[in-house]
Structure formats: C-alpha cells, structure tokens
Design a protein around this nucleic acid. Sequence first.
DNA 1: CTCCCTCGTGCACGTTTGTGCATAGTGCTT
DNA 2: AAGCACTATGCACAAACGTGCACGAGGGAG
Lengths: 324, 324
Amino acid sequence: MDPSRHSDALRAAQMYYLQDLTMDAIARELRTSRSTVSRLLSSARESGLVQIQIRNPLDTGPELEGRIRQRYGVDVHVVPVLETLNEAETLDRVAMQAARTIGPVVDSNAIIGVAWGSTLSAVSRHLTRKITHDSVIVQLNGAGNMHTTGITYASDIMRRFGSAYGARVEQFPVPAFFDHAATKTAMWNERSVQRILELQAKMSIAIFGVGSVDADYPSHVYAGGYLDEMDLNILATSDVVGDVATVFFRGDGSSDGIILNERSTGPALAELRQVRRRICVVSGVSKIKGLRGALAAGLATDLILDESTARRLVNYEGLPGANG
Amino acid sequence: MDPSRHSDALRAAQMYYLQDLTMDAIARELRTSRSTVSRLLSSARESGLVQIQIRNPLDTGPELEGRIRQRYGVDVHVVPVLETLNEAETLDRVAMQAARTIGPVVDSNAIIGVAWGSTLSAVSRHLTRKITHDSVIVQLNGAGNMHTTGITYASDIMRRFGSAYGARVEQFPVPAFFDHAATKTAMWNERSVQRILELQAKMSIAIFGVGSVDADYPSHVYAGGYLDEMDLNILATSDVVGDVATVFFRGDGSSDGIILNERSTGPALAELRQVRRRICVVSGVSKIKGLRGALAAGLATDLILDESTARRLVNYEGLPGANG
DNA sequence: CTCCCTCGTGCACGTTTGTGCATAGTGCTT
DNA sequence: AAGCACTATGCACAAACGTGCACGAGGGAG
C-alpha cells in the first residue's frame, strides 16, 4: 500500500534484528511511537521481509532425527510436541512449523505441486509470505466427489499457497476418482487436463500429507464420500496401507495391481519420485502405517512430523504387524 | 558442551521461532524455568542455530539502494543510522549489521580473505557464530610495520573470524609494506609465502574496508607508522584517493604506475577482482573518496555502508571535485 | 457540505522477556 | 574425603513488548 510504510518496515527490521536496538530506540529514530514500530515489525515478519530459519547441524541433531534420516534417506524435521496434546493441537503445531520450514525452500520460477487434505489445509493456514516471481502452484489431484463439485475446500488450500508466495494457481478440475477408468483415459487426452499434467511433470517441489487406512481420525479420502462401499471393501481386503494424493500403496511401497489407482487422479508414484524436492508432512501416530508405506515407496525427500510419530516410526520399524 | 543442552536449545528454538509459543509454555514442556529457556534461546541465536535474515526485495528497495545498485553494479545494503551519531557509534552499528549480513554468505569449504583495519576490527567483534566445515580464513595483506611486528592487532581480527566460523586461520606474517620492492620479490618466492598466495588465489569470499586519503579519522595505514614521510608525500602529490588492503588506487580506479604498490603486500586489484564474492564495508562519509575509487575499480560485488555515506555517494557522483 | 467509512496512530495496560544475584550441583585436585 | 572452581539454575525485579481501545485524518458517496 503505502510505499513509505514498507520502507519503514525494512528500516525497522534492520535496526531491530540486525543491530539489536530496542523498539523504543527505533521509534525515536523513525519519529513515531513504539507501538507503531511493534506493528511495523510484525508486518515485516508477516510479509516475509524477515526470515527466521533454524538450521540444525545434520551431524549433531538429536538421535531420533539421525536414525530416521539414516534409515530412510530423507531430510527429517521432528517437531517437538508434548505427547499429551490432542490431535488437533498437534496438527496445528506441526502445520505451523511445516509452513515455516517450507518457506525457505520456495523460490522464484518454482513449480510447486500441492495435494489437499486436512494436513495440507492446516499447513496452508500458517504459511508465511514470501515474494517470488513466476512461481506456479499446481494441484496434484482432483478434489471433486460423487455428490458435489467439492472444489472449494481444495481450492482454498491452493489459494492460500498462491497468495503466500505470489504465485499463479492452477487448479485440477476433475473428481478425486473417476467411476470408470475409461473416463480417466478420455479426460487425460483433453488439452485442459494435459496442461496440468505437463506442469506436474515439471514440478520442482511437491508438498503432501499421507492418508492411512487405520487412522482414527480418518483422512478425507476415506470418509468424504469419494469412494463407495465397494471401493472401501476392496481397500480393506487388499494390503493397501495408505495413500499420497489419492494414489494408494502397500506396506512395502509397491502399488502395482491396485485397480483403484487406475481411476485415481493423483500422479503415479513413479512420476512423483521424479520431483526433486518432495516434502511430506505427517501429524499423529495413527498415520504411522501409511507413513511407513510412503517411506518404503521412496516418495519423500523431506519429512516433517511430530515427535511421537517419529519415535513410533523408529521403535516399531522392523515389526510389520505392530500398530498400537 | 552438554549435548542435551544443545538439543534443548534446538527444541526451544523450534518452539519459539517456528511455533510462536511463549517462553513460559516452552519452559513447562521442557520442565525447566522460563529464565533457562530465555538463556537457551539466546545461546541458540548466538551459536548460529537460529538464523535471522532480512531479504529486501531488490526491485522494491528504497530508492537510494536502487540507484547505487544500478550505477555501480553492486549488491548494496544501506544501514539505517541517524546522521547525528558520532563516527564511533555509526561504525559500531554498521559493523554489527555487516557481521550479520556476512553470516549467511559464509559456508563450508569456503576460503575467506580478510583484510584488517578499524572497520574490519569492528566487524570481527560482532560476528555471529556459524558452524562450517573445512573453511579457511586467510589474511589478505601483511600487518607488520617498521617498528614492531604489529601482529596482534590484525591477528585478533583473524582469530575472531576463525572462531566464529570454526575455520582454520592462515596469517600472513610479513610487514604491510616492504622497504624495497626487491625484498618483496624475494619473499614472494618463499614457499611459506607462496602457500598464502595460493590460498588467496583460491578465495571465494573477500572482506575488506577502504582507506581514504582524506578521512578525518585516518585509516591505520596512513597513521600507524607503516609509511614514512617520503611515502606520504608521494601519496599526497599523486592522484591516489584511497586503498583496499594496502593497495592504492586513483579516483578513476586505476592503479598502474603507483610505485608504492610494488612494495605493498596486499593482492593486486586485478587479482582481487577474480574473487567471486567481494564484500566491502564502509562507515563514515569521510571515506567517500576512497569508496568511489574502489567502486570505479570494480573491487566490490557487495557493499555495506551507512545511510549518510550512501546518500553522499549518490548526490555527489558525477562531480569529481566535490568532497564536502 | 456533510456524513460515514476506513485506516493508521498513540495511549495505557497486562503480558512477556532479559538479567543480577544467591544457590545448588558437578567434576577436578589434593 | 574434603576443598575448590566452575557452571547451570531459579527467583525476583526491571525492561521491553503486544494489543484493545478511542481518536483523528483522509477520501468517497450522497
């Protein structure tokens, strides 16, 4: 808005964060009140002018992170959260930290694939602004279901990403699952769809959560009316443990022969693995099964998860039957 | 020291800076007192675990920066400082901001050339720690003078850089100026000296101030007994406007035919220009002449200077005779 | 011209944070 | 085993900070 306000914010931020002056001293230099400086600073943080990041030296990080990193070959960020918090609070804190961890990764000219779901929705609400040029946010999988167009929920997530990074948003206006694989084949030949698929093929960053079949707090995919009873039965009787962007996989990371995937609109796992930076956000121990499958499938390069889940991941690994 | 303290500091930093919890809440989670958390956080900042940086969008930056950037092709950081502050306070604030601006630039495996002088001394006192591996700090020019070995002053600067970045320090144990150019030629063939010169040739970052012949607050070079009266006379009657690392140049950036340089131990300007990142720190309007010469010579890729000097640089450019 | 809306500002208050000091813990020396 | 030096901790107080509220300036709309 006011250009001088922006430049005041910059000056204030420099003086506060780089010169360790108090807000009071800054107020005197800028000839304004201390409260105004306080507000200038918070707007500077909010607008991404000030970036705070935490770099934990990889080699000295806590043991938990080290073990996960080594075992799965992912860059891991364990979010410290008390075990006593409920799932909603945990999700909120994981999401906030995820949002701020993602910030520094995003840059100009990036093509960022974003999935949807309760995890991504929470993340999108905590994004901090960062000015980039010519970035694109592209939706990873459709969000319509059998009963409604169901677009608003997913599109809110996309919109928040877009406005946080000043990026163009490309929605994927298809249902989450087609009823018939043939319809998908037909649609995939449409030019409007191909444009999205081409963008996805050029993604440099992908951000997603995981769905897990046994989550107490079930993913939208399993509860949102996207699948009918027969589909759910098929899932229950197969070895499927979870999904990423509505593409299902088994505990060993394989996905071949899962017929539901032929009707799904998310990127095939092999395609996803082509993306340079693949950020997976997970909150809540109930997602452990899906998470382990996703890691086995090598879907993530970066993993952000809460401490309890991280601990569970380490303790129960190698015990495929354990889940509680 | 205590490994659990470090990991507590990391947890605290994540919760404070990434999750916006209050120190009180963090204290409860870590089962300690709030004051301890406060201290953990300041140690996290101090040890470089938390990095705060300010990125001003290049295109929207204040007009002053834009003009300097465009005119001289350098990446410029104008430090906001009240004009009423005295030189010592200004230097302190410029130095603090310079130190923190340099931080993010330094990385593992870097070879960092460092000059010496009052500016660099101030900068070295404000460096924030950052853990790097296999970095080297190499002294750009000798610091001995005619009367003493004069090593301590320069070596303090070097040592501070070394310990801030966990880097090896390579001193350059020669005088600032040789009495006879022939001595320099001889020394330059010594293997001990050649080792330093080879390091300098491989520098990826160089950090230096500028000397200016008309500075009221004269650089060590001109006042520290490094030059005798005849030398000073030669400088006064030539067109020399300043120096970088005891190598002199004229207002147009040229340095050919300045005989004093044949006895100087700093890197020739052409060599310096080979370095990828050349960070010049300037505080005080009295250095304007030297600064303009250094910019004309293309010695810097990054310039950090106080606001008054920046303004002077813009207003008086194109008026070569003006200096007040 | 007047009304009304919006937005930025300063004030005042309650909250949050930094720090000097006394104390308790830890490891090393004799 | 006792003494010593050093460091981390918690307490309490002062300093610094965030924010609801009321006010006033600017800018359309009627």
